[in-house]
């Protein structure tokens, strides 16, 4: 087998510059999970169907299992780990998913939240149908989507209210 080169990449992940040497065949999701140890981004399929691997690049949702790490060289990537504010307070979507029981096993959740963040950037007040359409690339096997729709609606209204969603201090609060 012929020798194959590795490539050097440099990108910004959750606001922090990161670098690495990767085989060209390394997918962005593997670079994030294995090289950067950002394991919040998941892999749920091998045919680009499930969206568990969704991250954003410049705010646009993409499937990181279907993008080479080398293609993301120079990109501005955000993963679920980058959603909280610097002070640790939750993003409105995280708050919405928690408040509305938008997750059960939590495996699809990071991808759902990242896909929903693309929606809310384009549409501040989505209808239920628009929400359902916007998460078509994300499969959840646990929730039947009912509460995910409520969670995203809740997040949208939090964002519209301008409040950076507060973190409750106690789960019973």
């Amino acid at each position: 087998m012929a020798e194959h080169m590795t490539e050097h990449i440099a990108l910004v992940v959750n606001g922090t510059p990161r670098e690495g040497d990767v085989e060209p065949r390394r997918m962005l999701v593997q670079f994030l999970r294995e090289d950067l140890e950002l394991t919040g981004t998941h892999v749920g399929c091998d045919t680009s169907q499930c969206g568990a691997c969704t991250v954003t690049i410049d705010g646009m949702a993409i499937k990181s299992c279907t993008m080479l790490a080398v293609q993301a060289d120079g990109a501005n990537v955000k993963t679920i780990e980058g959603m909280q504010a610097a002070d640790g307070s939750l993003h409105a979507l995280q708050e919405g998913f928690w408040a509305k029981h938008g997750l059960q096993c939590g495996f699809c959740t990071p991808g759902m939240i990242m896909a929903a963040s693309d929606l809310l950037a384009r549409n501040a007040d989505p209808t239920d149908d628009e929400i359902r359409h916007a998460i078509e690339g994300n499969i959840c096997r646990c929730t039947g989507y009912h509460n995910i729709v409520l969670a995203i609606r809740e997040a949208a209204s939090l964002v519209r209210a301008g409040a950076s969603a507060p973190t409750p201090t106690s789960i019973t609060a």
């Binding site: 679920i80 928690w98 997750l103 939590g106 990071p110 939240i113």
Partner: peptide
């Protein structure tokens, strides 16, 4: 009562630890 779930903070922040996350 419908208290929020205790396990959610780790899942909504990407800190869940599933099998393939173990290194």
């Amino acid at each position: 009562t419908s208290v929020r779930r205790t396990e959610d903070p780790r899942f909504i922040t990407g800190k869940g630890r599933y099998l393939d996350d173990i290194k």
